[in-house]
Design a protein around this nucleic acid. Sequence first.
DNA 1: GCGTTGATATCGAGG
DNA 2: CCTCGATGTCAACGC
Lengths: 247, 247
Amino acid sequence: MTASDHTGPVTLEQPAVETARETVADGIDRDALVTVFGRCTVEYDGRAASRLEAGDRHVMCKPDGTTLVHTDEGQQPVNWQPPGCSHEVYCEDDALFLESHRSTPEERLLVGFERVAQVSLFPISDSSDLTLVGTEEDLRQRILEDPGLLEPGFRPLATERDTPAGAIDIYGEDSVGRAVVVELKRRRVGPDAVSQLRRYVDALERDLHADASIRGILVAPSVTDRARGLLGEHDLEFVSLEPVGEG
Amino acid sequence: MTASDHTGPVTLEQPAVETARETVADGIDRDALVTVFGRCTVEYDGRAASRLEAGDRHVMCKPDGTTLVHTDEGQQPVNWQPPGCSHEVYCEDDALFLESHRSTPEERLLVGFERVAQVSLFPISDSSDLTLVGTEEDLRQRILEDPGLLEPGFRPLATERDTPAGAIDIYGEDSVGRAVVVELKRRRVGPDAVSQLRRYVDALERDLHADASIRGILVAPSVTDRARGLLGEHDLEFVSLEPVGEG
DNA sequence: GCGTTGATATCGAGG
DNA sequence: CCTCGATGTCAACGC
């Protein structure tokens, strides 16, 4: 390893299409992150089908098989292909084509550049992990470490307890020994979460052949009006709690 | 307007941080799409909180306020900020900082480059619209144009019919005049869709004070085993249909 | 592979 | 603004 290994990006501006093709092919071959900017059309066919007429876009091809087509607006790419695809690049009729394909499901993305304004290759290999705080897992830990946050006398007995309807976030007992199903959400909840909790409570009642009713408690920072109504209809309860303290 | 307005991308390689700052600031000011590649740390604080240690990443700032931080892997950015944020750029301790901020909710993304390998400005303004086929809306149109696809004698009466639980995709009557609630899904469905349909049927029964039971039909290409079981438990029906014909 | 659920989901429509 | 549901959701984890 020498200092020359720290090669920076390679950039071509306004390249001829054949030059662009060679450079992109080389980048893909060397597992570089490749970007192409220029005027292009985009076609997708697979889980759905779409077409985008000519316009200026920024295309990124990652060594893991991802392709992203970005315009000047929006967090989401206007078109894309997920990881695991194989990239191909070729010229035809004086245009540069980037094609990204996979099976299961069968889908294909084709980007055709009538004009290439820039091609860049970025040597990149990022091993750093993101540390994230404030997830549903944090909320679970918070309750397991201090079950009294749910209600005085609550005792957790299991997490991820499986039922025919799916896994229960926290299963436990209240101060008088009644079974409790706890469903956690890291943010404000709507009707879906109530239905989900109801499914778990129903499934557990069948599982346990319970004579006494099982309590269901939804834990989240807050709840919408419609969801609160559903909670009442289904005899479910709500406890307000955030994933991190002092939030 | 002259031909010189068709200025291509501006690219700097291995710029000094102050030069990079000026160029990025100029790009943001001129509503260009700005990319910065180099070794950086990333901090986020808002709906959750996260930190990413130093590594090589590709950062994109869009004129609509979006920021995206991409590594060599994954379709999703490792960190980001949604549209509507304000970009800021400054130097401190010989490092280049990109800061993206918004309120409601209060959140902030800070990218600190200890080394900038490339800065690019892309002049871009894309007006082209994506045409997409194979959506839930296509499935609805397909049934409305040929209600017999659902079952012989089905008559649609309304779409988006509102109930206290939300809007029903298609409301209609079967061949003997019974009310039918139709829930559409463009792809294979799990338990959630069954619960959703059950909510709608329940809400409509209350709304209509119906003595006769209301039928609920889930329309999708296919259904998981667990969802099929739930359909049976809840007296709901399933019809297999895809968003596009000959799919 | 499929099934299920979480996510800083994102996005758009509607009130 | 908030609420609600679709998405070519994506991604992780379990089976």
